[in-house]
Design a protein around this nucleic acid. Structure first.
Length: 859
RNA sequence: GCGAGAGUGGCGGAAUGGCAGACGCACUGGAAUUAGGAUCCAGCGGGAAACCGUGGGGGUUCGACUCCCCCCUCUCGCACCA
């Protein structure tokens, strides 16, 4: 066996072996327990980055581990392949999105293969494949039938010069990120998924997700934002109109002295129409609507508003409430109208001070009397009702229910539940996405594309100009069609779907990627779903994970999926970080632009900045491919696993990588040096083992198996699992058992080495396959069962008992593990080192922890 | 402001009520080598010592990195939500 460890030759050899033997291909097997392990699939941006390497390595360890434990493991991979970067690349480099995407997929696929991940590549899918988006269109139609899809006008970020909708994150300081022109709010007809219909279930079934991190659950709860309150109607004076507000504080109704409307509120403009105020109200509204959303929603924004000239009537007090349009009222929340109670709401307080509006105290705190004239801020806490007619004297918490009930009786209010969650707008004025299967007919209106006419094919023969408009809209062969109902000429919808739609059901499609009689093969999905372990970044805590949960519930109601929740356990891995480096003249520097702390271009000293997430913009990146070239995939994998536990951020360290490589070499050398001796070793038989040194080695071996198994299975703490194996390797390097040159010592040594290789194999599979076969094993290590341990062998015969006096460490004794507590006590009290601390003192108490510790409490 | 997480040697981290610092990196010394690198072995929180040490202060306990209360710092999420 070669003394040299040659990772590249070994890795390529085994990657070929796995591919040729289809080692990780799986099929449903009712006799075996399934385990579905999934990592979030990547966007094919061009090349894999270190974040992918870490994410997919963690997943691969678990997949391989579970397979060795006897599970039928589904471990698929695919591509989240629709999206804007493909279109931007098309504009920049004149490459068609289709070509660009599939080329990137090819590159990234081979990079993933080069990492040695155990995917069943036969299940690979790309969401831009016709087969995939066709069935997504079919799902859209089914949702349309069930009124889960609707079209509505809504306000969106609109860039006039680019003629397109922009996502919130594409608006920078109120300007379009591409052309730097001002972004406006525009009302556009958009398609929506009625996710709010599932709001309660999405919220309530979070409680069932005990395998999810608490903070993800919290983020989802906040996002859904359910609040209980009351809807109250206010009649507008001299008008048939009424304004409905939602409030969580109906107890303050008697103190409502004015009304605030969001600038987007339909009545905001209307109320001033035909009055002298119209022009000023109009220009105020216009000015606010133009403001950047971020600016508008910041807390330190100056509260301003304008009187519409109209008033409404407080339904319980008859108070004439002037109606204002106010910049801080959000159309998205409640009804876009707020009953303002200056005495008991801080915002209303500030607003009322500014515009000289009325203050009426309706809740008095205990032992204090509020006076509107002297109040410095609103009183928002508990208290007793005053100025509230029949509710006076009640605790305000009781008054909430009572006032609501009273309003219900009067017919001007009711209990209501509101959500922060909005229906999901899915229309995108983009080319590289899934066409929405809808036809517009002048005679019949909105007509869904009939099922048998699916798919609506995304035309490839198209020029992307960068004008911002979807090229589909200016493509007559696409737009012009006939109405499926009346056969007259009609137009196709040219918007495409949000790409989050594709990622909402891909994990179910993995169960049956070839199926073509529907989106999902129910039987196969039934076998594989739910995903037992999902792994991905925290950045998807709300959006993707919420949409995927929503889709699973919709698919369940369509009878395609039998589970309520798609992901039983969720692991959110930390980011990969690295220190940043900067040169005065050349800005951020890539690691390879730095030489001995100086800039490669100008030799100026480099400033080392803070450690941040690896990112191209700060250039603190390490290319996985270079890492593989230098050290091999196993080293890259080992470093990612060893540097920190998966849920924490990982700090990149070149020296740490070096250390990982050194360890693999160390294992390699250990086997290479002893191979000839070990290859004829027989299995260990207990009666041979009388030698203490051999016994100790066997104990360490079995303890290590136990620890590694627990660390991987129960905690996903690969770093401590690896250090346990390192300890065993260190012990083997001491070489004592082999010095015995007996059958028994050879056997024990082989047992230990085999354990090392087996335990490391999910983490560094290539080198372990090679070492395993060098030891004379015929089968691939991936088909070898995970080693088991013998509790009796792992158990220590002798125990080191720590002796404390008053909680301080004073000595230790070594005793047989089976001796009685009393004996330990005697020995401890007799221990020389302990004597000075207890002599002449009264022993009050002695506490023993079996096998570990004894604490003598003296007075 | 609210919520969550974190704070331990020179560094990454380990220990979830029982010997603080496993394992690795860096560093130091030794072996080997013509020499360097690689390798192997050993040492490595502070302090001369008594002792002191897990962000700071208090508490519970025989015993606290670990549990409870208060405070500080950092990271993330939410944030005029009526």
């Amino acid at each position: 066996m070669d003394k040299l460890y040659t990772p590249h030759a070994i890795e390529e050899k085994w990657q070929r072996y796995w591919e040729e033997n289809k080692s990780f291909k799986v099929a449903e097997d009712p006799h075996r327990k399934k385990y579905y392990l999934l990592e979030m699939f990547p966007y094919p941006s061009g090349r894999i980055h270190m974040g992918h390497v870490r994410n997919y390595t963690i997943g691969d360890v678990l997949a391989r581990f579970m397979a060795m434990r006897g599970y039928n493991v589904l471990h698929p991979m695919g591509w989240d392949a629709f999206g804007m970067p493909a279109e931007n690349a098309a504009i920049q480099s004149n490459t068609h999105p289709h070509e660009w995407t599939y080329k990137n997929i090819d590159t990234m696929r081979s990079q993933l293969k080069r990492m040695g991940f155990s995917y069943d590549w036969d299940r690979e899918l790309a969401t831009c494949d016709l087969m995939y988006y066709k069935w997504e269109q079919w799902l859209f139609l089914k949702m349309h039938e069930r009124d889960l899809v609707f079209r509505r006008k809504s306000f969106v970020n609109w860039c006039e010069s680019c003629q397109t909708v922009l996502a919130n994150e594409q608006v920078e300081g109120g300007l379009c990120w591409r052309c730097k022109k001002e972004v406006t709010q525009k009302e556009l007809a958009q398609w929506f998924f009625r996710i709010t219909r599932y709001a309660d279930e999405l919220l309530e079934s979070l409680d069932k997700l005990t395998g999810w991190p608490e903070r993800v659950l919290t983020m989802q709860r906040n996002w859904i934002g359910r609040s209980y309150g009351t809807e109250i109607d206010f009649a507008v004076e001299h008008s048939p109109e009424k304004i409905t507000v939602f409030t969580t504080r109906p107890d303050t109704l008697y103190g409502a002295t004015f009304m605030s409307l969001a600038p987007e509120h339909p009545l905001a403009r209307k109320l001033a129409e035909g009055t002298p105020r119209h022009a000023s109200v109009q220009s105020f509204i216009e000015r606010i609507l133009k403001q950047d959303k971020l600016v508008r929603s910041s807390e330190d924004l100056e509260k301003e508003g304008i009187f519409t000239g109209a008033c409404c009537i407080n339904p319980v007090t008859g108070f004439r409430m002037p109606i204002y349009v106010a910049n801080f009222v959000l159309m998205e929340y409640g009804s876009g109208a707020v009953m303002a109670v200056p005495t008991h709401d801080q915002r209303d307080f500030e607003f009322a001070k500014k515009y000289g509006l009325d203050f009426i105290v309706v809740i008095q705190p205990e032992g204090e009397t509020l006076d509107p004239k002297t109040m410095a801020c609103a009183y928002v806490d508990e208290g007793v009702m005053v100025n509230s007619q029949q509710f006076d004297g009640m605790k305000n918490s009781e008054a909430m229910e009572n006032i609501t009930r009273y309003l219900e009786k009067q017919g001007c209010g009711k209990k209501a539940v509101h959500y922060r969650l909005k229906d999901w707008g899915i229309s995108r004025q983009r080319y590289w996405g899934n066409p929405i299967p809808i036809i517009y007919c002048d005679a019949c209106g909105i007509v869904p594309v009939p099922e048998k006419e699916l798919p609506v094919v995304l035309l490839k023969d198209i020029t992307i100009t960068g004008s911002g408009q979807s090229p589909l809209a200016s493509c007559p062969e696409f737009v012009n069609t006939v109405c499926p109902r009346c056969a007259r000429p009609a137009r196709r919808e040219t918007d495409t779907m949000d790409t989050f739609v594709e990622s909402s059901w891909y994990f179910e499609r993995y169960a049956c990627p070839e199926y073509d009689s529907g989106p999902l093969d129910v039987q196969k999905v039934k076998y594989w779903m739910p995903v037992d372990q999902y792994i991905g970044g925290i950045e998807h805590a709300v959006l993707h994970l919420l949409y995927a949960r929503f889709f699973t519930k919709v698919l369940r109601d369509l009878g395609l999926v039998h589970v309520d929740e798609p992901f039983v356990n969720l692991l959110t891995q930390g980011m990969v970080c690295k220190e940043t480096q900067r040169c005065e003249t050349h800005g951020w520097l890539y690691p390879e632009e730095v030489h001995n702390g100086t800039c490669k271009h100008c030799s100026a000293p480099v400033q080392v900045g803070r450690t941040e997430k690896m990112s191209k913009s700060t250039r603190n990146v390490v290319d996985p491919e270079q890492l593989i070239q230098k050290y091999g995939a196993d080293t890259a994998r080992l470093f990612c696993l060893f540097a920190s536990p998966p849920e924490k951020d990982l700090e990149w360290s070149d020296q740490g990588v070096e250390g990982a490589y050194r360890f693999l070499y160390r294992v390699w050398r250990l086997v290479a040096e002893h191979r000839d001796n070990l290859i004829q070793a027989l299995p260990v038989s207990d009666e041979q083992v009388i030698d203490t040194i051999i016994k100790n080695l066997r104990r360490k071996t079995h303890q290590t198996i136990k620890k590694v198994t627990d660390d991987i299975f129960q905690r996903f703490h690969f770093n401590t699992a690896i250090s346990a194996v390192m300890e065993l390797v260190n012990e083997l390097y001491q070489g004592a058992p082999l010095a015995r040159e007996s059958t028994a010592s050879r056997a024990a040594f082989r047992e230990a080495i085999e354990a090392v290789i087996l335990l490391l194999s999910p983490m560094v599979p290539h080198v372990c396959e090679e070492l395993w076969s060098e030891l004379g094993n015929r089968d691939s290590i991936s088909k070898t069962p995970w080693p088991s341990y013998d509790e009796a062998i792992a158990e220590a015969e002798e125990a080191v008992i720590v002796i404390q006096v008053n909680g301080k460490l004073r000595g230790q004794i070594t005793v047989n593990a089976k001796v009685s507590e009393n004996y330990i006590k005697e020995q401890a009290l007799a221990c020389e080192k302990v004597q000075p601390w207890i002599s002449g003192k009264q022993i009050k108490k002695v506490i023993t922890v079996p096998g570990k510790l004894i604490n003598i409490v003296v007075g």
